[in-house]
């Protein structure tokens, strides 16, 4: 066990955990930010996607010891009032079914729009391919990302 300091959604946190503990479980078990989901634990499904140092990362595969001083943003901190254009577009298109994967989808899409403000269908598919939606809401996710991109431009 060791003490780690983290900056999550602009707040400082301190946790006492094993060095190999993935960021996912720090968020979920120790900081009570359960919006970030566990899906596979091996970086294959994207449900645990958060932003680390501004990039989309799979928090299930990032041990706390490797985080360093990079700031973490989770779905709870994406927008102060939960009104990021992607969150609003998700509601407009009524994207979720079970909803479990959607935080990861939104975080992945947010990173995409940060680097590419007007992605094509192919670019959306390529970037979002690592995020599984078991309910099959892919066509709505694509539409919502385009709506959000339009609003942000």
């Amino acid at each position: 066990m060791a003490i780690y300091k983290l900056n999550i959604n602009g707040k400082e946190h301190q946790v006492d955990v094993d060095a190999d503990t993935p960021l996912l479980w720090i968020l979920r078990d120790h900081v009570q930010l359960t919006g970030t989901k566990y899906g596979c634990g091996v970086g294959q499904c994207g449900a645990c996607t958060v932003h680390v140092g501004g990039y989309a990362m799979r928090s299930c595969s990032l041990p706390i010891s490797q985080l360093g001083d990079q700031a973490v943003v989770t779905i709870e901190g994406l927008a102060e009032n939960g009104d990021h254009p992607l969150q609003e577009a998700w509601l407009e298109h009524d994207v979720p079914q079970c909803g479990y994967c959607q935080a990861g989808q939104i975080m992945q899409a947010a990173a995409l729009l940060q680097s590419n403000s007007a992605p094509s269908d192919e670019e959306i598919a390529a970037t979002m391919n690592g995020n599984i939606c078991r309910c099959g809401t892919y066509t709505r996710i694509k539409a919502a990302i385009k709506t959000a991109a339009d609003k942000m431009n």
Partner: peptide
């Protein structure tokens, strides 16, 4: 979806 807001905010 009545839970939509909660879903997109985690």
């Amino acid at each position: 979806n009545v839970d939509g807001q909660k879903i997109v905010r985690g």
